[in-house]
């Protein structure tokens, strides 16, 4: 093997590319500074800026309420993890139930279609209110009535419906030739679903599933409408009376602290398995 000495031409190209990169960086930096400065100027010269800064960005208030809100956020995270796990399992079961063909299971299939139609079609806030205030009115002795439980239940109802549609799309994306190959080997319909279709279906929709899981992390904040003492409810209590809205900003800050790294991690994972957005794989094309 010979060692490669870049040709004169290759060196010229490399120098040209380095020059273009420096230029691109300079342009990007300049445009960022200009846009940021402009935004800042619009903000601080707005007539209500002084008032707004006091009521939304009060540093003392911010540090004051942060620990309490963080404690509330812990409830959001637990609701997120539990509701997320339950929704994923339930969503998959719902999607599989829809693929069955046995006549005896017709009521099941019909029920699943109805379930998905209803919970996909009703705003999640409405589901929360109906479950949170409607179910306790039934006075079922075995039903826990904590707001966090009922809120999680409502989130599971909505999210399992959404997730089942994603799983169903995944099941439909598995090529029919895979089913033909499995059946040709003598596998039954059920064996084919479990061993061949579902594993490939799940693989195909992992990015879409992860995006829903990230969305659920934010929606976990909705349980506050039922009075569950989560990050948003803690902030709300702090705001009441003081008319200083800094606690809301603090809550938003904490949600971002979780959701931004999560989104980045999901994007990185998806990119690694070759699922890219509009930019990505084609970025190297001149």
């Amino acid at each position: 093997m010979t060692t490669w000495q870049p040709s004169e031409r290759a060196l010229q190209r490399a120098a040209y590319r380095a020059g273009r990169r420096r230029r691109s960086f300079g342009v990007a930096l300049l445009s960022t500074v200009v846009v940021a400065a402009l935004a800042w100027w619009v903000l601080v010269t707005s007539p209500g800026w002084e008032r707004a800064r006091e009521t939304f960005f009060d540093p003392a208030e911010f540090t004051d309420v942060l620990p309490g809100i963080a404690e509330g956020l812990w409830l959001n995270l637990r609701v997120w993890l539990i509701a997320g796990a339950v929704s994923l399992v339930l969503g998959l079961l719902l999607a599989i139930a829809r693929t069955t063909t046995a006549p005896a299971l017709f009521p099941l299939r019909a029920a699943v279609v109805g379930y998905v139609d209803i919970f996909r079609g009703v705003p999640v806030l409405l589901v929360l209110l109906l479950v949170g205030f409607g179910l306790p009115a039934l006075r079922l002795p075995w039903l826990p009535n904590q707001a966090a439980f009922l809120g999680s239940l409502a989130l599971v109802l909505t999210y399992s419906a959404y997730l089942s549609e994603i799983f169903r799309a995944g099941i439909e994306s598995v090529h029919p030739s895979q089913v033909a190959a499995a059946r040709a080997l003598g596998l039954t319909r059920g064996q084919t679903t479990r061993r061949v279709v579902v594993p490939q279906a799940v693989r195909n929709v992992v990015p879409a599933l992860l995006n829903m899981v990230v969305a659920l992390q934010k929606d976990s904040g909705l349980i506050s409408v039922l009075g569950a003492v989560d990050a948003i409810r803690v902030a709300e209590i702090a705001v009441t009376g003081s008319y200083n809205f800094t606690p809301y900003v603090a809550a938003g800050f904490l949600f971002l602290l979780v959701s931004v790294p999560l989104t980045r991690a999901v994007d990185a994972y998806n990119a690694r398995r070759g699922w890219r957005g509009a930019r990505g794989a084609a970025v190297g094309i001149r």
């Binding site: 030739s177 895979q178 190959a181 490939q200």
Partner: peptide, 9 residues
């Protein structure tokens, strides 16, 4: 089959 149809997973 013509296209093998091996199970990719």
């Amino acid at each position: 089959f013509q296209a093998y149809n091996l199970f990719g997973h």
